[in-house]
Design a binder for these strands. Structure first.
Lengths: 149, 149
DNA sequence: CCTTGACTTTGAGTGCGCTCAAAGATGTAC
DNA sequence: GTACATCTTTGAGCGCACTCAAAGTCAAGG
């Protein structure tokens, strides 16, 4: 055919690591724990990653970056190997993770708002220090959700 | 005064754990690593938490829940002990963390969108299976950010 | 008096997700 | 031909944030 003389084509592990925002260590680790199928090899035994590998790795990266545990990614990867018959189960995993993400977003947004509030408070304190104003009053500025603050 | 006969007042460690969404283990852990000052004790040596402790613990919980490392929380806690003079430094920590949170939110939102997309794709696949339609075509549905999909 | 249960301490153990060390093969550049 | 970079493998090590085990104290209830 044609591919026989192309076996050295594809990305090296370093290339792929950079493309996916992981280290080469992590790529090998993912392979040995079964998150990605044994990768093709060049004649010298070095790994050569395909575009398909890249897409899958990007997906894995995205799931990890949003705190999906390796365990769950493994389960998903296994189902994926089994083909379309596992579609429902896989969808369930994704839906559950999407729910988890939504929850995280809410928590982060709340924390963001809290920090904005506290930062404003610090600015006030700094102002008072600068003008040598009264340092008293204003209940503990560290009391997060406490009333007023 | 009055407080002398009130030394057993305040929340028990269990109460506080429930109120703050942590375990008693974690509360003791936070105390020994200096995240919270030595807590008051009842006559029998048991910890008794104050309202101020609760507010601070809530804050800590909120920071941890948004992935602030313990190390950074320790640094913040130390500065807090030092009083108003550390205001600027503390504000910097909060601002940095707020930035980190904003970044996380964006990542999560992207992942959320990606999942929504993939979930829709799975539904299509399931539909095709149900009606026994053509199983071919449509490039790998797992290719995350890949074009079309 | 004795049991029960909630607490105390100290130090060790756990689970996760990498991360690295060591030793070796291969291919390119000078 | 020899240095150098880049890869390979296996198994061990690490940092984080808890989490628990063991042994002990104390107060209330039956």
């Amino acid at each position: 055919m044609y591919g026989d003389c192309m076996q050295d084509a594809g990305y090296t592990i370093q290339d792929m690591a950079e493309r996916c925002g992981m280290t080469a260590h992590t790529l090998r680790y993912y392979e040995r724990v079964g998150l990605i199928q044994p990768v093709g090899r060049a004649r010298n035994g070095h790994r050569r990653y395909s575009e398909a590998d890249e897409a899958w790795l990007h997906f894995l990266h995205c799931m990890r970056a949003t705190n999906m545990p390796i365990r769950e990614m493994q389960r998903y990867a296994e189902l994926r190997e089994l083909g379309d018959a596992t579609s429902l189960e896989r969808r369930k995993i994704l839906e559950d993770h999407r729910t988890a993400i939504a929850t995280q977003i809410v928590e982060l947004q709340q924390a963001h708002a809290l920090l904005t509030h506290k930062i404003a408070n610090y600015k006030k304190i700094e102002q008072r220090i600068r003008i040598g104003g009264p340092m008293i009053a204003e209940p503990e500025p560290d009391c997060s959700l406490a009333p007023a603050s």
